[in-house]
Design a binder for these strands. Structure first.
Lengths: 229, 229
DNA sequence: CAGGGTTTTCGACTCTCGGGCATAAACTAC
DNA sequence: GTAGTTTATGCCCGAGAGTCGAAAACCCTG
């Protein structure tokens, strides 16, 4: 069963790159080569032998779309794809979050598109975008996942705007700050920020305490024996 | 970049098969062929062209370890593996949950091992078992994920025992029934069950209302505009 | 058949946390 | 200085989880 007569596949990585600029946006790449020439698709490419999947993903993000400052990179899922005329592809999807403020300078064929108003994308990649959005929505609800989308320093109003763009409904900045603050996920920096247009009380500046993913609720739907750790 | 000169990999699927029999156990397979001959590893095998990854996983589970009644099957992650001397492998890991009562008749080379006391497993598969356990722990806390581990009908005490085996700490049957019942995830069947040894009040028999995964809390860490749906 | 032991079930209570609201504070513009 | 805008702080309320005790249902023994 380990004989080399088995058919072989070409490993491919693709990323759903998400950022928030008022709206939730994803990065699409207009293909200039077959297959699916002149169609939009997710940025990505082939994996080299000896290369890790995540390494390949970062390489393609940096080389093809100029994305180097990735706030968070996470594998979504894999599936066997017959979308290529000659090759059997094994498609591994990633979710990449870009913090606000890190503006990658994009190659000409690459554009941000609002997730709520996507063009037609090839290879069934629209499903991957939907799953990525869904997973991100979950992450914001039970972790500090917004650290990878928010700028390094922000006001509670700005952070609430990030949540609103992802979740799709209004979020109260006061309550948001209290919840994240109680879990120790965000903390005030001491600085202040003035509102953009007309006057008002300057807002306190906050920052996430950690830049890696932390699950706030310790999965305690039921009681983890309060005494111990 | 789509030239067929790229190196190709052999897609492989592996499953962390978990069940609960008092303890949480996983299914390991003693390899009788190279590589890693006579070592324990996760059950799995090659993917055929034209076959979906999940289809290949189910095929191997049925053929190699006699597992046909899978309560839940879910992809974990993929990684590029250099563990084979001749082939470049692309390893896709799955989590498979076996309900209690469905006892697959195992081939001679296959055994259940308690997750807390594993033998040495090859190919770095120990990490996959850990990640599977971790994900399962999360599932039990915010979904009806236990439906795939529990028998079709059970008492609250029996269900609590399943939770304890996975979570590692005591769970109150009363509270568990109330929480899952309020969300409509479990419901009494009307039947009764007598305790095993000495007498006592017979316990009501319960069953999960759905046999697919349902996320109980609608990810509402913040307010989803109570009016609408 | 009465009584003790065992297990489950039900109800009441408490505590924490999310959400809402009103008020105070801080700043700008006129 | 006054009006207007925005943020911050405190308090209240309700929902839900966790605990506890008492009642219910059953078995076994004498």
């Amino acid at each position: 069963m380990s004989s080399p007569t088995h058919r072989l596949a070409a490993p491919v990585v693709n990323a759903v790159v998400l950022r928030v600029t008022g709206r939730l946006e994803t990065l699409l790449w207009r293909r200039s080569t077959p297959p699916a020439e002149d169609c939009w698709s997710l940025p990505g490419g082939f994996v080299r032998q000896g290369e890790s999947l995540e390494g390949a993903m970062r390489r393609h993000l940096a080389a093809k779309v100029g994305v180097t400052d990735v706030g968070h990179l996470e594998q979504l899922d894999s599936h066997s794809a017959e979308t290529h005329p000659e090759l059997w592809l094994l498609d591994v999807s990633y979710l990449a979050l870009i913090p606000r403020g890190a503006e990658p300078h994009l190659p000409p064929d690459t554009e941000w598109h609002p997730v709520e108003d996507l063009p037609t994308v090839a290879f069934g990649h629209a499903g991957a975008i939907g799953r990525a959005h869904e997973r991100l929505r979950g992450k914001l609800s039970y972790s500090n996942g917004a650290f990878a989308l928010a700028p390094p320093r922000f006001t509670l109003r700005e952070l609430a705007a990030v949540y609103e763009a992802v979740l799709g409904y209004a979020v109260d900045p006061t309550n948001l700050g209290r919840v994240l603050g109680r879990d120790g996920l965000v903390a005030p920096t001491g600085g202040q920020r003035r509102a953009g247009s007309s006057g008002g009380r300057p807002a306190a500046e906050f920052a996430f305490t950690r830049r890696e993913l932390v699950v706030s609720r310790p999965l305690a739907a039921f009681k983890p024996r309060d005494g111990g750790g």
